[in-house]
Design a protein around this nucleic acid. Structure first.
Length: 553
RNA sequence: UGGGCUGUCGCCAAGCGGCAAGGCAACGGGUUUUGAUCCCGUCAUACGCAGGUUCAAAUCCUGCCAGCCCAGCCA
């Protein structure tokens, strides 16, 4: 953020310059996913950037499916991506765009390049092309097909288009410079032959444009002013510019320009579609929307909100620096949002029974508890109190372990949240020594007030009344991997955190009977949870994130 | 001496020649019937390193060093 309390970055600075110099009267951006996987939080960064810029500058942002490779893409990903974008709260400008809708135009522009003697059909196979390309330190050499006549090339391209050649038999290449230090300028492939059925154009085409050829032209056709992508495309910018500058329709000062920013990397997770796909396919997670996945749908199922994700991307910012972002920034963003919106409730994740010995048998009290301690307008809810309750195992110790301990112990009083002060007297254990039941007494004059004699009760613990308690399953999530940063070549499947999902069975208060999937609730002292959106009938709660905990005891 | 980028607090990140923003974390303290929230305070004589230009340099110049990316008929 800058001094004016707004987020700034080098792209905004560039837009400001372009607008000031009247290069453009308004801006146009685009979000161009390839439909070959689900969107993840790194894409969310790009979505908020592109759609956010358009919104702030009163411009437009297209959603364009970059679908130039029929062998890798699938209609199911298109649907999932649209759903994720809508969920994030964005509406694309006009109709959804598809690179495949421009196939005819791409073909005509390819013809234009041939006519300008800037492209040729090459019959070298892929191995030969690689050999001819040279290496990073050694220049390449010209293809023997480089000097085919324009007329012949036109004819060959037409034959490629007509399906007269086999897959892999030939490609269309740009005629640029085999000695360039940019590998992508050594006569890049512009078109290849594929007989696969395309999800949009079906069997209409036998040739498909490469990314570098399709992307810049798509941007230009749509009037994109600022084409934003990630750092690995920096070299490709030379090809992007070369293509547009050599096409009469687009060789103008206000043509699209590409700007690159660094992709988002998060600690303890992976942000590559390929790796995420491996996790899904090898059933190492339950699916693309597994709550441990950094996908939009996973985060959503986990209980993350779009407000939090947007705030996170704002806090992280846009730059060109390679980064590994601290998970805490994401966690704090979701806590900040949920703290404001989440109704409070009580749930016991790891229950032990408590018997209030001096409380009348058969009596059931209805008490009221605030739904939000700072927001009275959210009202109150009914909770119950009786002789038999559940508290969390971690909230009782036989002997006070240290002087900072503020929970229940024998002869140590504690406040039951929104109810009475109790004091433990004794307890039962099972055969293995685990505590099963705690016996306690309650102070009947402490409801909504401190003890009369001035005793200070420091600790507050949560509870659920036994007869009214609802059984619930809690799914407790932790980081997906055990390392902050996964090395380039290490076997990432071996580095999965085996404790990333722990399932507990416990109790929640009866008000949770009509809780709704994906809506955030705070189980007080435990954290934020939401009902799982794939298990509609049972009370299954996904832990979004725990409360901030400064307790070092 | 292939080329393209990047190096500002533990993590993000502004800064574009005039006296190092902000967020997160951390650390003190206050409020609190959530060890939560909230509030208040502390937290880079220093910008990868070394030189140089200038009254003045994180910002300009030179030279190093480190990291990332590029040799798909992937995007």
């Amino acid at each position: 953020m800058n001094k004016n309390n707004t987020y700034t970055n080098f792209i905004r600075n560039q837009i400001d310059i372009d607008l000031e110099q009247k290069l453009h009267t308004s801006i146009q951006t685009r979000f161009p996913p390839e439909p070959n996987g689900y969107l993840h939080i790194g894409h969310a960064k790009s979505i908020f950037l592109n759609f956010g810029l358009a919104k702030d500058y009163k411009g437009r942002c297209n959603l364009r499916f970059d679908d130039t490779n029929p062998t890798k893409e699938d209609i199911k990903f298109i649907d999932a991506i649209k759903e994720d974008i809508k969920w994030l709260g964005f509406l694309w400008d006009g109709n959804i765009k598809y690179s495949s809708h421009y196939f005819k135009q791409f073909y005509e522009y390819a013809t234009e390049l041939i006519n300008k003697n800037l492209a040729y059909v090459c019959f070298l196979d892929s191995d030969e092309i690689r050999t001819y390309r040279g290496t990073l330190k050694k220049v390449g050499k010209d293809s023997p097909y480089r000097n085919t006549s324009i007329e012949k090339n036109l004819e060959l391209l037409a034959k490629m288009k007509a399906g007269k050649f086999l897959e892999g038999e030939c490609v269309l290449r740009g005629k640029i410079d085999m000695r360039s230090s940019f590998m992508c300028m050594r006569d890049p492939t512009l078109y290849r032959i594929r007989f696969d059925k395309h999800h949009q154009t079906k069997n209409q085409w036998y040739i498909y444009p490469m990314y570098d050829f399709a992307h810049c032209i798509s941007d230009a056709i749509e009037g994109v002013t600022h084409s934003l992508c990630t750092l690995e495309f920096q070299d490709n910018r030379r090809l992007y510019d070369w293509i547009l500058e050599n096409l009469d329709d687009f060789n103008k000062p206000n043509r699209p320009h590409q700007y690159e920013f660094s992709r988002l990397n998060l600690e303890y997770t992976v942000m590559s579609k390929r790796k995420l796909q491996i996790l899904v396919e090898n059933k190492l997670v339950s699916g693309w929307d597994d709550p441990r996945m950094p996908t939009i749908s996973g985060l959503r199922r986990r209980g993350y909100t779009k407000v939090a994700i947007r705030e996170f991307t704002n806090r992280v910012g846009i730059s060109k620096v390679d980064n590994i972002t601290d998970m805490k920034i994401l966690e704090v963003a979701i806590r900040d949002n949920l703290n404001i919106v989440a109704p409070r409730t009580m749930g016991v994740i790891d229950p032990i029974r408590v018997i209030i010995e001096n409380y009348p048998e058969g009596k059931l009290e209805t008490l009221q508890a605030p739904i939000h301690p700072q927001n009275k307008t959210m009202g109150k809810r009914n909770i119950f109190f009786s002789r038999e309750l559940y508290i969390d195992k971690a909230d009782f110790k036989e002997i006070v372990p240290n002087k900072k301990f503020r929970r229940l112990a024998i002869n140590k009083e504690v406040r039951l949240r929104s109810a009475y002060v109790i004091n433990a007297t004794t307890f039962d254990t099972d055969l293995s020594g685990n505590i099963t039941t705690v016996y306690a007494t309650y102070d009947s004059d402490t409801l909504g007030k401190n003890p009369k004699d001035g005793r200070k009760i420091k600790g507050v613990i949560h509870f659920v009344e036994a007869s009214k308690a609802l059984k619930a399953e809690f799914r407790l999530y932790d980081r997906l991997f055990i390392l902050k940063k996964l090395g380039k070549n290490n076997n990432f499947e071996q580095l999965l955190n085996k404790q990333s999902l722990i399932t507990n069975h416990g109790m929640v208060e009866p008000s949770m009977a009509n809780s709704k999937p994906e809506l955030a609730y705070q189980f007080e002292r435990e954290g934020y949870f939401c009902r799982d959106n794939q298990s509609s009938n049972k009370l299954i709660f996904n832990k979004t994130i725990g409360l901030h905990n400064a307790w070092k005891g």
